[in-house]
Design a protein around this nucleic acid. Structure first.
Length: 802
DNA sequence: GAGCACTGC
């Protein structure tokens, strides 16, 4: 839509997360700082033997369970579809002995109580229908609306049909282990919490029979886990080293309608794998009506539709388009507060700044109303919600609405002003009114200038419906859309474009190759990305040396794919031992992978800037990040007590803990490939330049050249975009060439997180890119001059030697 | 002289 009669909001564009800058409080310790985070904090609740998958132990074969009729010694026998019917399963569920526990155990009282609740779920009523479709075909599609119970129940239904824990098979690694059922989730918290719930429902222990795997945490047991919840990205990682996903007998892709990059790749991949492996079952679960598209994609797989369990939501539209959605949203909240029955309000806005602004305005207006007419208007509690908010403040959304100001007075009300985070990731009970202006920030990728940015855009119909549904979780609700019904019908697109169409695919293309996909263009994508996007990715990967000229993965590319990083970062990390700075590059890569570590609260901008200046390195922001990390490790040896120091230095403790975690993970990957962890002596004049050289090896395509005339103006190499160094940068001078980590489109074109580099390095480490054939203008002349000088020097050297 | 929508490895 965006056209004529939609409110035109100034386009705000912003690049993906990143960091910016700040003078070292003394030099960093010359001894490399290794990660102190030996203990994973996520795992502290589990005994040590449960924290990681065991790889070597021998399991014991157990007797067949009640449904495993006539299984023989043939390992494949267990995977031939058996005719399990609901009545059989229900009788086992109701029985006395838990067929899933490692040692036969009677069901607990709690199990029976939970079972009675499970029977009320809509999906339970369709168990027979599920088995019918599940058994008739290798792949099936399911639509389960909110509250249907699909995420918790379907994997259990599958478990009953196979009782795979009774059927241990020797894997490729020689370990006797059950074939697993995997259920993927787009988000970590979901994978974790659903696994916990399902372990309770099945009356087994979390991390034993039922587990979960997410980044930084594997709560599964190689010998006993048969049902595993995991993030979609994690399954994709596993597929990189096991192209057939041999450890699994059934894979359930949940929340497929969200169309995350990982889900999309998995769908294409699983379509291929199921064709090769007839014993692998696939269930694709979606919450929307878009299921027909899924069904068609999976060769007309049978479809099961399960209703949700929510309350009706009445929708209202505006008569005329709203010229200013922010103002309209504020007005609507105040109107609801004055005229509607008690019940909390949820408002969707696009970003932090807008939300804080709206909170202030609503608070002021509501306080005014309550003081002027205390008989009509109760107190209003306004709560902001967005992801960068500290967790303690995020918790405020669960606080109850305020009480009436006096006994018998009008009741109080809570209003949550949120980003899209409340659309999928967080559910707030008790919301009765939703205010939907119809916008969100969305990622867009422009392959022409190779820039990903965030743009305020109209949402889709599916998204609008999801938002409305947030009003009907506990009782009937109302949704106020701040656009006309006509616009809803004719201007909003049906579904948000899947992520694969809106992203830079450099990483994805590398992953696909590693996954064994030969032809990236003919791969069966549900929605094929623009060929130009793939070409851009191939070009980058070829220049980085990950792909050869035939488009095949090189040995370097193989290793690059193993790092959970963008290819530029993994490249610089892999070459860093050659420059004797891998300890430092590890730190920089980790710091670049987490949200900005520098805090700059509105009430203390100057103090924050002064604090950052204490860490600043004159040659650039990458080195500044290194200083910050070293200072953090020196001053906060124990992460649990570091928050005070961080706060005093205007640093985000959360980001630093995260960086430390990422650093350890990257270090483990380095060690796995025998990449040396080394540092140049800090007193050496090469200490910093070695780091800059390694940076150059990864980021030579992200370099800007100083414009001849105006001071502080740069042009990007190749794309000739005019850019300015981001004001947050601590680079103290204007070098001829600067390397940037990200290109940010906001009020102007900015390059953020920048470092001084020399043309000699660019030419030396990226000769295929920086040569006179490939470049033009000023840069070409400079390269020629450089080569001439070098030629002369070499000749002189030769002459003196000769 | 500015601003992290949201996930994931």
């Amino acid at each position: 839509m965006a056209s004529s009669d939609r409110p035109a909001k100034r386009s705000k564009m912003e690049n993906g997360g990143g960091s910016s800058a700040a003078a070292p409080p003394g030099p960093p310790p010359s001894k490399p700082v290794h990660s102190a985070a030996k203990e994973n904090p996520y795992l502290s609740h589990l005994p040590p033997e449960q924290r990681f998958t065991r790889g070597d132990a021998e399991g014991s074969e157990r007797g067949a369970g009640p449904l495993a009729n006539g299984r023989s010694g043939n390992p494949l026998d267990g995977f031939i579809p058996r005719q399990v019917v609901g009545s059989q399963v229900r009788s086992v569920m109701e029985g006395g002995i838990n067929p899933f526990s490692i040692t036969p155990t009677p069901f607990s009282k709690k199990y029976k109580d939970i079972l009675n609740k499970r029977k009320e779920l809509p999906v339970y009523a369709q168990m027979d229908e599920f088995y019918e479709k599940f058994q008739e075909s290798q792949t099936m599609v399911m639509i389960g609306e909110t509250g249907s119970g699909k995420t918790t129940q379907i994997p259990q239904f599958v478990a009953y049909s196979d009782l795979p824990q009774t059927r241990k098979v020797k894997g490729p690694d020689g370990v006797l282990a059950p074939r697993m059922i995997a259920c993927t989730q787009p988000r970590r918290v979901a994978a974790m919490s659903v696994a916990k719930r399902v372990a309770e429902e099945m009356d087994v222990s979390l991390g034993k029979e039922v587990g979960y795997t997410i980044r930084f945490e594997d709560a599964t047991d190689r010998r006993t886990t048969f049902l595993k919840y995991m993030t979609d990205g994690m399954l994709l990682r596993e597929a990189m080293n096991d192209h057939n996903l041999e450890r699994y007998s059934c894979i359930i892709l949940d929340e497929a309608h969200e169309r995350t990059l990982a889900t999309d790749i998995l769908m294409g991949l699983l379509k291929e794998i199921t064709a090769r492996r007839k014993d692998l079952k696939l269930i694709v679960m979606s919450a929307t009506l878009d299921a027909l598209k899924f069904q068609k994609y999976f060769n007309d797989a049978p479809l099961l539709r399960v209703p949700g369990r929510t309350f009706p939501v009445e929708t209202f539209y505006t008569q005329e388009p709203e010229p200013d959605y922010l103002e309209a949203a504020i007005r609507t909240v105040l109107m609801i507060h004055q005229a509607e029955d008690p019940g909390d309000i949820l408002v969707f806005l696009t970003g932090e700044e807008e939300i804080e602004d709206a909170c202030r305005k609503i608070k002021a207006e509501a306080d005014d109303l309550a003081s002027k007419s205390p008989d009509l208007c109760g107190p209003l509690k306004v709560v902001p919600l967005y992801s960068s908010l500290p967790p303690a403040q995020q918790q405020r959304i669960f606080e109850p609405a305020p009480a009436a100001l006096y006994e018998g007075g009008p009741p109080g009300r809570k209003v949550v002003i949120s980003t899209n985070i409340a659309e999928t990731s967080l559910t707030i009970d008790g919301i009765v009114y939703v205010v939907d202006p119809g916008f969100s920030k969305q990622k867009v990728y422009n392959p022409r200038i190779r820039v990903e940015s965030l743009l305020v855009s109209p949402i889709s119909k599916a998204s609008a419906q999801q938002r409305a549904g947030r009003a009907g979780r506990t009782r009937p609700g109302k949704c106020f859309r701040l656009y006309t019904e006509k616009d809803f019908i004719s201007e909003l697109i049906e579904q948000t474009y899947p992520e694969i169409l809106r992203s830079n695919l450099a990483n994805t293309v590398l992953e696909l190759k590693k996954l064994g996909v030969d032809n990236l263009v003919t791969f069966d994508y549900m929605d094929p990305p623009a060929p130009e996007t793939i070409m851009r990715a191939l070009e980058l990967l070829n220049y980085l040396g990950a792909f050869d000229d035939e488009g095949n993965l090189t040995p370097l590319g193989e290793i690059m794919a193993e790092f959970p990083l963008d290819p530029q970062l993994s490249k610089m990390l892999i070459v860093s031992p050659e420059f004797r700075c891998s300890n430092e590059i590890l730190t920089i890569a980790a710091m670049l992978s987490v949200p900005n570590v520098f805090l700059r609260p509105n009430f203390a901008k100057q103090q924050a800037d002064a604090a950052r200046a204490e860490f600043a390195h004159p040659d650039g922001d990458h080195l500044t990040l290194l200083n910050v990390y070293h200072a953090y490790k020196t001053n906060c040896p124990d992460p649990s007590t570091g928050s005070n120091w961080c706060w005093q230095n205007y640093l985000s403790h959360r980001s630093l803990i995260q960086a430390d975690n990422v650093r350890s993970q990257l270090q483990r990957t380095m060690e796995r490939f025998d990449l040396d962890l080394v540092s140049t002596d800090f007193s050496s004049k090469d200490y910093y330049t070695n780091i800059q050289r390694a940076l150059t090896c990864g980021f030579f395509m992200q370099v800007a050249h100083k414009e001849g005339g105006s001071k502080g103006s740069y042009t990007t190499i190749k794309d000739n975009q005019i850019v300015s160094p981001h004001p947050s940068s601590c680079l103290s001078h204007s070098p001829e060439y600067l390397l940037y980590h990200e290109f940010v489109l906001t009020t102007r074109n900015y390059v953020r997180t920048i470092t001084d580099v020399r043309l000699e390095w660019l030419v030396e480490y990226a000769p295929a890119y920086y040569n006179t054939m490939n470049m033009e203008g000023e840069i070409k002349r400079q390269i020629m001059a450089l080569e001439q000088r070098k030629g002369k020097k070499d000749k002189k050297k030769k002459d003196t030697q000769g």
